[in-house]
Amino acid sequence: MRFDEIVRFMLFEYQETAQGFADFNTGLYPYFDPRSFLVEFQIEAERCRLPDKGYLRIWLHLPLHSPSEDDIDILKVSPLEALVRYPRLEVNIGYAFFEFDLASVVVNLEISIIFSFRHFRQQFDIDPVTVGEYDTESVLFREYTASFGNIYFDENSTSLAKSIVGEETNQYLQAKKLYYYVVENFQYCFMAHSAIEADGIPESLYAYEHHFGDCGMQSVFFATLCRSIGIPARTRGGFQLFSGQLGSRFWAEFFLPNYGWVPVYTSAGQFANYAMNVTDDERKAFIDFFFGNQEPLRVSVQNSVDREPKEGPFDIQ
Rank of each mutant, 00 (worst) to 15 (best):
R2I: 11
I6S: 04
R8M: 09
T17Y: 10
A22R: 14
T26P: 03
R57Y: 08
L60E: 09
L62C: 12
P63C: 05
P67G: 01
E69S: 08
D71L: 08
I72R: 03
V84D: 09
N92V: 08
N92I: 06
G94A: 10
A96W: 02
E99C: 11
V106K: 14
E110L: 11
I111L: 11
F115L: 05
R121Q: 15
F124H: 15
D125S: 13
T130R: 03
D135F: 10
S138M: 06
Y144C: 00
S147A: 14
A161I: 03
E167M: 13
V182E: 00
E184Y: 13
A192E: 15
I201Y: 00
Y208H: 08
G213K: 03
M217D: 05
F221T: 00
S228E: 00
I231T: 05
G244E: 14
S248P: 14
N258T: 06
Y259L: 04
G260Q: 07
G260W: 06
S267H: 10
N273L: 15
N273Y: 08
N277F: 12
D280M: 12
D281V: 14
R283W: 08
F289P: 01
E295I: 08
P296V: 11
V299Y: 01
V299G: 02
S300G: 06
P313A: 06
I316S: 12
